[in-house]
Nucleic acid binder design. Sequence first.
RNA 1: GGAGAGGUAUCGAAGUGGUCAUAACGGGGCUGACUCGAAAUCAGUUUGAGGGAAACCUCACGUGGGUUCGAAUCCCACCCUCUCCGCCA
Length: 424
Amino acid sequence: MLDIKRIRTNPDELKAALALRNKTDIDVDALIALDESRRALMAEVEAKKAKRNADSAQVPKLKKAGEDASALLAEMKRLSDEITALDSQVSEKEAELNDFLMSIPNIPYKDVAPGKDDSANEELRRWGEPRTFDFEPKPHWDIGTELNVLDFDTAAKVTGARFTFYRGLGARLERAVFNFFLDVHTLESGYTEVFPPFLANTASMRGTGQLPKFAEDMYHVEGTDYYLIPTAEVPVTNMYREQILDAAELPIKHCAYSACFRGEAGSAGRDTRGIIRQHQFNKVELVKFTKPEDSYAELESLTINAELVLQKLGLPYRVVRLCGGDLGFSSAMTYDIEVWMPSYDRYLEISSCSNFEDYQARRANIRFRRDKASKPELCHTLNGSGVAVGRTVAAILENYQQKDGSVLIPEALWPYMAGNKAIK
RNA sequence: GGAGAGGUAUCGAAGUGGUCAUAACGGGGCUGACUCGAAAUCAGUUUGAGGGAAACCUCACGUGGGUUCGAAUCCCACCCUCUCCGCCA
C-alpha cells in the first residue's frame, strides 16, 4: 500500500507510475477528492469529541458540588448522537479510501523501463551455454514418465489435474534439490533458515498483499481463518508484522523451504504438461528486511545468491529486468531469473527477485528504529525464489538427459543422492 | 475438545464507571550530577498512529460489537498465552 500523504503531495508521480504500468483504470483525482472529504469529516468529528471530553470532566465536578448536572447531560447526549453519526461516516470514508489504496500498485523504481508485456523485459546477463543435442531431446514429462520418477496419472486419480507423484529417485531428487538450496543459502550466503507454517491467517494474507485482490488464486480452509500459503514469503514476511525492529538487526535475511499452493485461476491451458505449473509445488524462498537506503544493493545480492545455486547445478540461465507492464502488483523492481528449458526452446522463469520498498511494510506495519531516540521508520522488504524446486527438477531432467534415456545427476547433488549419479 | 487463570508502554505490574493513560509502583534505556574513570547513589527523561500552518486536538488498555452523557472497568462474541484434563504424530 502506498502512503496517502505521498499521493496527496505528488499526484503526478503516481499518474506517471500508473502510465508506466499501463494501468489506465485508476482515477487518481477521485482518490484525492475522497481523501479530502475524509479529512474534513475527521476535523468536524474530532472537534465535537474534544467538546464532549471537556464536558465530561465537568460532570463529576458538578456532582461533587451538589449541583444539578441534568442540563449538561442532555447536551452531552445530543452531542454523542452527532458523534456516533459522524463517526460512522468517517469509518465509511476510511474503508473506502483504504480499499482504493489497496487497489493501487506500487510505484516502479526509476530503472524500470516502459513496456507492455514480457517481450519488453530487458535482458541483463546470461550464464552458461544452452546445450546442443546430437539426438532429439525429450520434454521432462516424457523423461519422467519413462524413468518412472514422475507419475501424473496416479496423482490425477488421487487428487486431480496439476498434481504429481514423484517416485523413487525422482522423489529423492526433489528432496535433494531443496536441501542443497538451503545448504548453499545458509552456509555460503548467510541466510538464517526458518521452517514456517504452510497455512496463514487473513491478517497475514493482507499483510503481504495476497488479499484482498488475489483471493481466487488461493486455497481457503473451510470453516477456518486459514489459507494455504502460495509462497513462504507470506509466513516469513509476516513474522515481523506489527513489530519495530532494532536497526542493528538489519538486514534480516531468511531462507525458507515450503510447499506452495496456488489455485492458478486464469492459467487454464497454459503449461499443462509436466511439472511447470502445479497447484502444489516446492520452493525455497529468500526474504530480506532492510533499511531503505540499502534495499537496492540488497536486491542485487539477493539475485546473485539465487543465481549461485543454478551455477552450481550447471544450468544455463539469464537474468531480465521486468518492464513496467510485466511488473508484479506490489513490486517496485523485479529481476526474473530464467533457466534454459530445452522442451520450451527458450528460457523459463525459475525465480523472481523483487524489492517492494516500503509497500509491503506499510501494509504489514514492519518498522525499525535507527536508535533509541529516533522515530520508527518503515523497513524495506525484498524476496526472491532461491529457487523454484519443481522447475529445477524439470530443468535437470531436460538439460542432463542422455541419448539412452537416462539422466545424469549434477555433481553438486551427489552428496544428497545416496550414491546415485544418474537416474536410469 | 473440556475446566481454570490471564492479555494494560521496552519488561514486570497497579488500576474494577468520571478525580488513573504517558498510564501509579518497580526494572530497563537515555541525559545530567558526584567520580581520575567505573560501580553505587541522586535528579530529570523515555508509547504509537492520525488530523492541523500552528497553538493544539483526536484515537489506541488482545480484537470486534453492545450498554452509558461518559467504559481499561459492566454485557456479548471471537483470538491468543499459561496450567490441568482428554485426544494425538
